[in-house]
Computed example of a mutant assay.
Amino acid sequence: MNLKNKTLLITDIDEFIGLRTAELAIAQGMKVRGLHSTEQDKKAHDLGIDVIVGNITDPTTAKKACQGVDIVLHTAQIAQEAGSINDFREINVGGSINMAKAAKDAGVKTFVHLSSVMVYGFDYPDGVTESGPISGDNNPYCQTKIEAETALLELNASPDFGIIIIRAGDIYGPGSIPWIVRPIHMMRQKLFAYANDGKGVINHVYIDNLIDGIFLAIEKEPYGEIFNITDGQETSWKEYFMRLAAMESLPAPLSLPKDEIKLFLRLRVQGQKLFRKKVDILPESIDFMTRPYACSIAKAQSLLNFKPTIDLEEGMQRTHEWLQETDIQKLLQ
């Protein structure tokens, strides 16, 4: 599919993935429409994007958003580390199915679903491929991303309506809350530590590399397929967090046993709730930061000709420049 002059609907347009995708799509000559659950963000407005306000679980909103659209990029989700499984299912599964059905009914050609390598759980084989194994690991995020993938692939009806699943790695770059904003915020407060000597691998993917992979998938139309998209680098958790600290000229973080960090965070959460402050990081987040191995991107390299162009050093430099101009405290409110 030639992307020029195609109309792309992006759900969660005002979040950092959606907004950056919109910027790069417009630069490629695409028309962009957005769907978001709250009032239009100034950044989307400045880009001239028509934003529809509504919930992805509402059939009327979904129908309206999908009219006249060629491609849907579905990024909306609950991406917390823990919470009620019913809340996760309502958005991550129910909302995804609702958007896909509306897209199919509206004659949309391509539906790209942003999933996650978290469908492999917290303990998977080295070089895990799209064939698995997958595991919910009793985590509502992991479990509902698996359920959404299964339900969406049942709607694939190539060539008239094609579903493509993108299992994104740990997305970092300007605007990334879990992998940039939160750790930097805690490092500045001298509250950050990484677990278990930083062993294991972060499956990082710079935001622009991810979007390149998404655009390649749209162009090549591999309907019914699933792709891991990461930077393809085996970076240890220790190296990543050390780089993050050095980037901001902050002291090198300490390493503590995983259980000690989780206990500290449980106490922190209790204190924040007691004083009616917003909980900024959950104990379960440590599970997300101790995964052991790298995922394989061989399939994306082979079928999509995916080649990550921004390495960790350049990605960190771009992120540093963004941090110099950004009050990250506002992003955590």
Rank of each mutant, 00 (worst) to 15 (best):
A44D: 13
D12A: 12
D50R: 05
V53C: 13
A44N: 07
I26K: 07
I10R: 08
T7S: 08
A22K: 03
H74Q: 09
T11G: 02
D70F: 15
H74T: 03
I10C: 09
I49K: 06
I49A: 06
D70Y: 15
I49M: 07
K64G: 01
K63W: 00
T11R: 00
T7Y: 11
K43G: 14
R33F: 12
H74V: 04
V72Y: 00
I49P: 11
K42V: 15
G48M: 04
T57K: 03
K31P: 12
K63L: 01
I49D: 06
D41H: 07
I17L: 15
L9V: 04
G29F: 07
G48I: 02
L9W: 10
P59I: 01
L47N: 08
L19G: 11
T7W: 10
I78Y: 00
R33G: 07
T57C: 09
T11Q: 01
T60Y: 01
I13E: 13
T61W: 01
E23L: 14
G68I: 04
Q28P: 08
G29H: 10
V51T: 10
D50H: 03
D14E: 14
A44P: 14
H45C: 14
L73I: 13
I13Q: 12
L19F: 13
K42A: 15
I71G: 13
K31C: 07
L24W: 04
A27P: 14
I10G: 10
I56M: 04
D46I: 04
N55R: 10
V51Q: 02
K31G: 09
R20A: 10
D58M: 11
L47I: 04
G48H: 05
T75N: 11
P59A: 02
D70I: 11
T61S: 05
V51A: 01
D70N: 13
I78D: 02
L8G: 05
A76Q: 02
N55D: 12
H45Q: 15
D14S: 10
T38H: 07
D46F: 02
T60H: 03
D14A: 08
Q40G: 15
V72N: 01
T75H: 10
I78L: 10
L24N: 07
R33D: 09
H36V: 12
K64T: 00
D58R: 09
V72T: 04
L47T: 04
V69F: 06
D50N: 06
